[in-house]
Design a protein around this nucleic acid. Structure first.
Length: 280
DNA sequence: ATCTATTCCTGGCTGC
DNA sequence: TGCAGCCAGGAATAGA
């Protein structure tokens, strides 16, 4: 499941392949993949890529003439570049959108593909200011790798909810998902059900440090390949091997050897060590 | 403000 | 081998 480190890995891989290239043609193979009203991916035809960046879990592509595209991979989305020959050979029924690219020096005819098994992923196309103004995009909270410990603690204490739910709330912090929320709470030694408002200042600081450390390590590892996530070139990330709580029900805690527990918190599977993650 | 349930969607798993 | 039924889950949405 792509979260911040996975999306960051996608952006870093795609940026050198896409920057400077033009989209000749856009084809939509699954209508619901294209979000927005009106749906208008054809506005990107003839536009040249200026930048590829990340905001929260969104991949954002800036085009010339102030056009832009935002992509959310949700559960099973994948972006990558393939040659026309590869695409023809593979006959991949899960490709939902195809962007025909111009021929760059040293590269033949290539297509940017959006592949998505479960069709939860979404692509928005339009003018840059329209994309930025999208309400789902506009209400995103701060970037977890940019926020200061002080600002983080202040935000934390301004909320009444449970830590796990808060970390998953994209308006609170943009980019954490189920995997890294559990990992950050484990690392900080905080219980998923702890009330945000009751978290003591030193615990808030530990949580902030844990979030930044986990995300930094996961980005360096190319993210976690769980279920379907793969890099744009088809290779897996390897941070899944470093996970200490997520998906490890029954396995011994790496700190105290007690078995990792799984509960459901806010309709999400939640893994934690009941012995060393305390509610306060 | 916060919480819960529901929807989207399909591969993979379980059980018969 | 086949098939029905269930599950996971990010985000939007509605309702409490």
């Amino acid at each position: 499941m792509p979260e911040l480190p996975e999306v960051e890995s996608v952006v870093r891989a795609l940026a050198p392949m896409l920057t400077g290239r033009s989209v000749k043609n856009v084809r939509v193979l699954n209508r619901s993949t294209v979000a927005g009203s009106p749906r208008k991916p054809s506005v990107l035809e003839g536009r040249r890529v200026e930048r590829v960046l990340r905001r929260g879990k969104y991949i954002v592509v800036h085009f010339d003439e102030a056009f832009a595209m935002a992509v959310h991979l949700r559960m099973t989305g994948w972006l990558g570049v393939k040659t026309q020959a590869q695409v023809a050979e593979e006959q991949d029924k899960f490709v939902r959108m195809v962007f025909e690219l111009d021929e760059a020096p040293g590269r033949g005819a290539e297509w940017l593909l959006f592949r998505d098994i479960r069709k939860f992923g979404r692509v928005w196309c339009g003018r840059r200011e329209e994309i930025i103004a999208l309400k789902s995009f506009n209400k995103l909270g701060p970037e977890p790798l940019a926020i200061t410990p002080e600002a983080f603690a202040e935000r934390l204490h301004a909320h009444r909810g449970r830590l796990k739910s808060l970390l998953l709330n994209q308006a609170f912090l943009a980019g954490l998902g189920n995997i890294y929320a559990d990992e950050a709470l484990f690392e900080a030694g905080l219980h998923p059900l702890a009330l945000a408002q009751q978290v003591k200042p030193d615990s808030a600081r530990r949580l902030h440090a844990a979030i930044q450390a986990i995300l930094g390590k996961a980005i360096s590892a190319g993210g976690s390949s769980i279920d379907d996530y793969l890099h744009p070139d088809g290779t897996p990330g390897w941070f899944q091997r470093e996970l200490k709580a997520y998906g490890r029900e029954g396995e011994p805690c790496t700190r105290c050897k007690a078995p990792i527990k799984r509960d459901v918190v806010g309709q999400r599977g939640t893994w934690y060590c009941a012995k060393c993650q305390k509610k306060r």
